[in-house]
Every structure is written in structure tokens, then in C-alpha cells.
Simulated scan of single mutants.
Amino acid sequence: MSRRERKENARPGALRAYVGAIALFAAAAAFAAEPDPARARELVEAAQTQPPSTVDGHLELGRAYYVLGQYAEAKIEFETVLRFDNLPQDLLSQVEIYNQAATQALDEKRSLTGFGYAETGIGRYQVNNTVGTNALGGGDRRDTFYNARAGGGMNYALPNDYAIDATLDYRFRYYDNSESRNDSDLRWRLAGSRSFGESNLAVGFRGRTSYRGDGDYRNDAGLFADYRYRVDPDNQLTLGAEYRRRRYPEGRLRDRSRTSADVSGGWVHSLLEGAGSLTLTAHGGQHFATSRPDGNSSFYGATAALDFTVNNKLGWGTFVWWERDAFNNDRIHFHPDALDNSVLLRRKDNLYEVGAYLVWEFVPTWTLRPELLWIRDQSNSIGFNYSSTEFWLNIRKGF
């Protein structure tokens, strides 16, 4: 085929793309002027012919999906161009935060967009009976606790589809029982990102400072990279990598300081025409440069999460998390199958978390959030077996 023939054959495709782009632009302009379901549907249908390739295009399409109640698709569109961290775990709240930022960017023409929140509540903590908790005298302990959380995030749009984002998140828990420690945790993130049509790459720093009781603190800080790719309206792929240092500056936990390197990969899939989403993630890596008697360890694991929205005021979800840690030093331990005898072994842990939640927006920007969390640490060494169950009820205010 000659060069001229190839050029002529390319014209119909180019013409269709041009017409599709014009239709998408027209639908977006109409939707911005009057965001009703009919115009949102027009924008979604136009995008099927010519998917958006700009930041504003993805934000407009995300808002259209939001109006139509297709929250999983809306989240995928928003996350192709927006970066926020420490969001609520439920799909409905996440999409509402992204939609607010999209409105700030598109209607108010703001380069700086963001969100804020504050929440508080009461809960019940119980240490369950295991061979480890019974041996240490802590089995079946029950405590009432009060918790509070506040924070927010921002995204600053730069030319050429670059952006800077930052978040702060502070959490505090106070126990009625004087023998229980009162926990506090401050998490932060600062990153730069760039959108590339259907994908987004972010690189930055994040960390946390945690109070661990008895005057002990833990500091985490690391460098990370995170990549997202929008396969189609219903599917998103993610890749991540992080290098971080966990440091206990002083005290009885100092030998737990370590460096970690890990990678992860995930898949997000829309369910029930956008009313729900399924997220599957796998991760693995190495803990090293540690003073722990059990030595360095390799780890791998997986997470599965289901999120559903009943309507624009009510949502629920559940998740399962698992991790396998294998240490590299032989050491004297008490084995669970030989309670009265010490044995030489290499420690191996299986860690599990299972959670469920309900979210109800009883008035605009106010939500009621009951949550349940079960934790199980299973080890071939008695002292590292642990289990707890927590239930709490929080009220959250979004800004």
C-alpha cells in the first residue's frame, strides 16, 4: 500500500474521532451548565465513541457517572487524574469527595482542590482467647474506647497535566481501662503526579508517627511510586512500589526497627452497573536491616474488598486481608504444639484481618458509620499468637 493510500484510508477513522470529540465536548458543556441525568447519559454515550484524553474530560465523565449512580465507574474516572490519600474505605464517600473536587476544578475554575473531615465515636475492644494471649495473661480482655479522627487533603493542578497532592490524617483512641494504652497516629503524604490520557503516575513521600504506649513511639517514612491504568470504564489496574524505614527511637521496642521494600499489583472492577466494586490486590517484599532476634523476613499476601451502594445515602462493604511472614534466623521459642518445651525453630506468621462496615448519610455531609474488625495473628511461636475483635460507631462530618 502506498503512502497516499494509507493516508486516504486513515481519513474516515480520523473523521470519526473528530466527530466523536466534538460530540463529547458538546455533551460536557451541556452537562456543566445543567447536571441532570439526561445530559449525564448523553456525556457517557459520547465518551463510548471518543473516550476523554484530558484531565477535564475525565473529571466531566466522572461527574456524569456520579449523577447516574454508577459510582464504581465514577471512581475509576476520577482516579485517572486525581490523587487523594487516607480516604474513607467506602465507595460512596470516596466518590463524593472526588466529585466535590471535580466541581471545584470545573465550575469554580480552581487549581487548588481539596477536602476535609472530622469524626468521633465510641467502640468496644476485646482480646480473644488464643494460645498466645492466654500464655501472656491477656486473653478475653474487654475495653471500651473513644476515638477521634481529623484531617484533609489537597490537589494542586499544574500545567501539562502535572499535579501536586498532600494529605494529613490524625487518629486518637482513648481507653476506659487504665491498663490499656491510649493510641495516637499521625499520617502524611506529599507527592507529584502526571496524567497520561488513560493512566496516572505518582511519586512521592509518605510516613506516620505512632504512639505505642509506655512512652514509645514509632516513626515510618518512605519513598513510593504508584501507577494507575484505566483499561475501560469498568476496569482499572494498579502497580505500586515502596521503600521505607520503620524506626523505634528508644525503649523496649527499639530492636523492631527495620527497613522494608515491597511491590504490589491490583485490579478494580465495577459490579452491578456501577453500584458496587471488587478490588483484588497482591503484595510482597522483604524486611531487612533489623535487630530483631528472628532476623530479616520475607512476606507476601493479598487483599479482597467488596463495596456496594444501596442508594446515594447508604452503602456497605467488607474486606479480607492476609499476609505470610517467614523469618530467616533459627531461635529458641515455645512451640504451640509443645507448650511446656522450648524448641529451635524459624518463626513463621500468618496474619489475618476481616472487616465490615455500613455508611449512612442521614443529612448532607454527615454520616453514621458502624464498623467491625477481626484480627488474628497465627504463629509457630506461642508469644506471637494474638486475636482481637473491635466494633465502633462513628459520626463523620465532611467539608
Rank of each mutant, 00 (worst) to 15 (best):
S387C: 08
S387L: 03
E353N: 12
Y386I: 03
R346I: 00
F391Q: 04
T367Q: 10
I375P: 00
A356G: 10
Y352V: 05
T367N: 08
V354M: 03
Q378F: 13
K348H: 10
N385V: 02
E361H: 14
S388A: 15
K397F: 14
I395Y: 06
R396L: 14
D349A: 08
R396D: 07
R396C: 11
Y386K: 00
T389Q: 06
V354Q: 02
F362I: 01
I395H: 08
S387G: 11
L358D: 00
R346S: 07
L393A: 11
E353K: 09
I395R: 09
T389F: 14
L393C: 08
R346P: 01
N350C: 00
L393S: 08
T365W: 13
N350D: 10
T367C: 01
R376V: 09
Y357V: 05
R347Y: 04
V354A: 06
A356V: 02
F384D: 15
R369T: 13
E353T: 14
Y352P: 02
R396A: 15
Y352R: 13
S388C: 03
T365E: 11
Q378K: 15
R347N: 02
E361Y: 14
V363E: 05
I395S: 13
V354T: 07
E353I: 10
W374N: 11
L368N: 02
F391Y: 09
L393G: 08
E371I: 12
Q378Y: 15
L351K: 12
F384S: 09
L368W: 10
D349K: 05
Y357T: 03
R369K: 14
N350W: 08
V359N: 09
D349V: 08
L368Y: 05
F362P: 00
N350K: 07
E371Q: 15
S387R: 11
L393D: 05
I382S: 06
L373N: 07
Q378W: 12
P370D: 12
L358S: 03
I395D: 05
I382F: 02
G383M: 09
W392M: 10
P370C: 14
N385D: 11
T389P: 00
L368C: 06
T367P: 07
L345S: 04
R347M: 04
I382C: 04
S381C: 09
D377I: 12
E371Y: 12
R376G: 04
W366L: 14
I375M: 13
E353C: 02
L351W: 06
F362E: 05
E371H: 12
N385I: 05
W374S: 08
Y352D: 00
V363I: 14
E371T: 15
S387V: 10
K348F: 09
P364D: 13
R396P: 10
W374Q: 13
E371W: 07
W366D: 00
R376N: 09
W360N: 06
I382T: 13
W392I: 03
Y357D: 01
E371A: 15
L345T: 05
K348N: 12
E390T: 15
P364F: 04
L373R: 13
E361N: 12
K348Y: 03
L351I: 09
F362W: 11
S379M: 10
F391D: 00
E390H: 09
V363W: 03
T389W: 08
N394E: 06
T389C: 07
N394V: 07
R376W: 12
D377F: 14
T365V: 13
R396H: 13
D349E: 13
L372C: 06
P370K: 11
F362V: 07
L373M: 12
N385M: 04
R347D: 03
I375E: 13
